[in-house]
Design a binder for these strands. Structure first.
Length: 222
DNA sequence: GACCAGGCACATC
DNA sequence: GATGTGCATGGT
């Protein structure tokens, strides 16, 4: 590896600046957004969240009262609306039944315990769980997404076959255990990925282009 | 019209 | 463990 994790981060930060992901939103709104954004553009998620806000449903107990069919219609703009409604209900069951509807109480749990509990919810996978823990709870867990995988594999910094947990460990073992840093790093990777590292790479103008291996980006099948 | 987006569960081999 | 498929709206 020709650049450290910190150097890569700083290069991205110099280019794009702070991303302010989920800065002024409530933890609950962040949690809902984490589910709705699964394989979906953020723009669509915003419309769905607006629908909930207009009805004062951005509250765990209030949203828990809403029948799943009604919830589905409200979040329709986010896509996959029927399955996401079910997933939100599953998550709300955990929040309300185990933590009395208090996210504050929920985030008192240890990172390890809470991560297990979230992963046990049908519809919450590793990325959604880590997004909730990091962005809603401020807990130090690194979020890995498609762009993280793609950007790092194409530069030869990890293997294309690396699994979620391996990539997460790669970052967490090479960085200070700092939620702010994890937050910014992940957001910056999404930013550079969105601009330069989609299914077909656009390396011209990419701040990481100078770090590419000989012959350009690695390409198995993505 | 084709392609894509801040995944996940489930079926099958 | 590795692949393949369904889920769905809205932007480019």
């Amino acid at each position: 590896m020709s650049a450290t994790l910190e150097e890569i981060h700083n290069r991205l930060l110099d280019t794009y600046g702070h991303q302010h992901w989920w800065p002024g939103e409530s933890p609950f709104e962040v949690m809902v957004g984490a589910v709705l954004v699964q394989n979906t553009s953020w723009k669509n998620v915003e419309r769905a969240i607006e629908n909930l806000r207009e009805r004062d449903l951005l509250d765990p107990v209030a949203l828990h009262q809403v029948p799943v069919e009604e919830l589905a219609e409200l979040i329709r703009p986010a896509g996959y609306y029927r399955i996401k409604a079910r997933r939100l209900c599953n998550l709300l069951d955990l929040v309300v039944e185990r933590y009395g509807g208090s996210l504050e109480a929920m985030f008192q749990s240890s990172l390890e315990t809470l991560r297990e509990e979230l992963l046990a919810v049908n519809g919450i996978g590793p990325e959604t769980a880590d997004s909730i823990l990091l962005y809603a709870g401020g807990m130090p867990t690194f979020v890995v997404d498609t762009y993280t995988h793609r950007v790092f594999a194409r530069h030869g910094w990890i293997d294309f076959s690396a699994r979620y947990h391996e990539i997460k460990e790669h970052f967490e073992s090479g960085l200070e255990k700092d939620p702010q840093l994890y937050n910014e790093y992940h957001a910056l990777l999404v930013r550079v990925g969105h601009l330069h590292c989609r299914k077909t790479p656009k390396c011209a103008g990419c701040p990481l282009a100078g770090l590419l291996p000989e012959g350009g980006p690695r390409e198995p099948e993505f």
